[in-house]
Design a binder for these strands. Sequence first.
RNA 1: GCCGCGGUAGUAUAGCUCGGCCAAGUAUGCGGGCCUUUCGAGCCCGUGACCCGGGUUCAAAUCCCGGCCGCGGCACCA
Length: 507
Amino acid sequence: MTYEEQVKLFEQYKELVTPPERKEKELLPPLPNAVEGRVVTRFAPNPDFVIHLGNARPAILSHEYARKYKGRFILRFEDTDPRTKTPIKEVYDLIKEDLKWLDIRWDEEYIQSLRMEVFYEIAKELIKKNGAYVDTCELEESKKLIKEGIGCPTRENPVSWQLEHFEKMIEGYYGEGEAVLRVKTDLKHPDISVRDWVAFRIIDTGKHLHPLVGDKYVAWPTYNFAVSVDDHLMGITHILRGKEHTQNATKQMFLFNHMGWKYPTAIHFGRVHFEGFIMSKSKIRELISKEPNRFWGYEDPRFGTLRGLRRRGILPQAIKQLILEVGIKGTDTRITYTNLAAINRKILDEKAHRIMFVYEPQEYTIVTDVPLESKVPIHPSSEKTRVYTIKPRDKICINKSDSNSKVVRLLGLGNFMVEGDKLRYIGSDISIVKEHRVPIIQWVPCTQNVNVSVYRPSGLDLLVQKGYSELGILDYKVDDKLQFIRYGFVRVDQITDNEIKVVFAHE
RNA sequence: GCCGCGGUAGUAUAGCUCGGCCAAGUAUGCGGGCCUUUCGAGCCCGUGACCCGGGUUCAAAUCCCGGCCGCGGCACCA
């Protein structure tokens, strides 16, 4: 049948065909294998650094899905490496603050370093199931044997031997590198890192004190072991994490199979590149320790940490919306600040009060016969205004770049002719402004104003722009977000006796 | 090198499971206009994409094969 014939036929029987409804678009796609009321997700950060935009993705998505399906959301600190990823005592709380700021509430909270006995017990069970062995070969020898598909000869020792030697590991009989517990996997697995992966290793906590448990333990579970055990014990049904973990799922599966556990549904999404922002933990740590005077710690607005973004005036709702839009795709995403700013602006515009701010002041004398009263609304949709009285011969400042026009309208005050260093009042009829496209500009009295410094992050630099704002800015407090008219959105950062410091958010 | 995942406008995302409602939707960006006592917001118009090549089919962004490109992993890190 040709296409034309089909169309003809279709027209004939049109009424009999009900077109399928277009699926309704939800912000989040449905979660595979999800049953309402039974979804359990978790966010599992290492408390060695605060949350940045990249970590916010698993945090927000895990939380959001748990809520969507009326399930549970668990916060779990994964702090089982006091040697190379040393947890920081203060950071446990900083992370919790970051999450609360994002409006993420967790139903349960765990810290892995406080669960060591659990890990030891499960390890022993695993050994009894012949699923693990103590490897006492030299590290290089071990690696070589695994590569050859054989493994350390102790692999074949009886369970009793394994239990005995694992006990010795826990008791501190071995020093660093002298013994590890390995999970028995496929010694022919194409990915060598999957072959008999390490479940426990010795860390000399006398040298590398753990911030919570000090030197109490020397046999520490690796990430893959601790994650597997906890994901099972805590009843996690869905794991949402970055794709750097895809291979870990393969490794963990062996442990789950040994133990007869069911592996959760795992979703791995791509990496988040935040253009123009530093997100690397090590890089940020290096910068703040090397140049403590130049950077404001974790909160520096030049960093992609949540704290940095907060200090810039980015709202948590904007971050959440951005992450939900990005979703759970496996591809990497390049997020730009412009994108985040667009969302932020939309939210901020409705509530940020307006303030007049002049940064390249040009002084003018007002020429008028009678005193003028200006009324500028604190927000375009607000009845509330700020009132200033301008008397004849008062001096006001406008931006130099605004002074090119022959006629200007000073916002809230009226229309003026520009005559040399004088501004002659010519009435306040708005219609001539529309008719002649007269620029409507912001202004401040030269004598009565407030010193303002605007901090503008620009790559690794922090530019400072000084200027004056109307007195109305004194009504606000630290962390308030304002819109400087015809300039951009800012966040009040610091108020001192002679100056207000604000951080520039975006236009 | 080996193993795995993925490629829709500048960016992000929808559609791909079940081929035709897709001459590809949405947001942002960019250009223009309207409105407006802010160059903001809002409204309107425009701009711009299915990685490439084969195959299957009346019909392919969607299925199959090959190539190319990108990303992740290859630790006694998480």
